[in-house]
Design a protein around this nucleic acid. Sequence first.
DNA 1: ATCCCGAGGG
DNA 2: CCCTCTGGAT
Length: 213
Amino acid sequence: MTPPEIHAFFARLSAANPAPVTELAYGNGYQLLVAVVLSAQATDVGVNKATRRLFELVHTPAQMLELGEEGLKAHIRTIGLFNSKAKNVIALSHRLVAEFGGEVPDSRDVLETLPGVGRKTANVVVNVLFGQETCAVDTHVFRLANRTGLAPGKTPLAVENGIMKRVKAPWRRDAHHWLILHGRYVCTARSPKCGECAVADLCQFRGKALAAG
DNA sequence: ATCCCGAGGG
DNA sequence: CCCTCTGGAT
């Protein structure tokens, strides 16, 4: 996509969604961090269902430690990978209490040292919580960047760098959210709804058959 | 490259 | 049934 096309691409997505926000439910920074960790390979709807009760009881890492790993598992058993996620959330909560006064660090590099937190999760947290211009590349962003031709890349990091290089203000800050929403509801993995897509004319893919490659 | 692992959709 | 869903650690 050319620079003018990229501008038009986000202008239209933003028209459909002027102020995009994460669909994960949370009441404070710590809860957001936990929700994002839990969301790996899981739908936000499924995560919200599990955290609804959990976040009524647990608002701080100290409270999470009080609940304990088995107590946490009881709440998140319906989420995929719940075993390793429970272990990570407990370990991460220990570190927040011991090293950060129970607060969520505002640095991506520091966040990435926490158990269960990789680059994607750290990018989401600093973007949503602290307004930093990052673009987390999840399954949706990776798919759309390659499918549309916005920022092709073989790895998530390559796609992230491509987006950060090509996408300028005022789109960079929320590019992640627009791509997620569009990927979730229109440009879906299996049968993209090209017929009702606002940016189909800017897309290198359009209605090309998936099976044809 | 492989494992962790469950719900929902097609 | 198979694929997808805001991945991370080994």
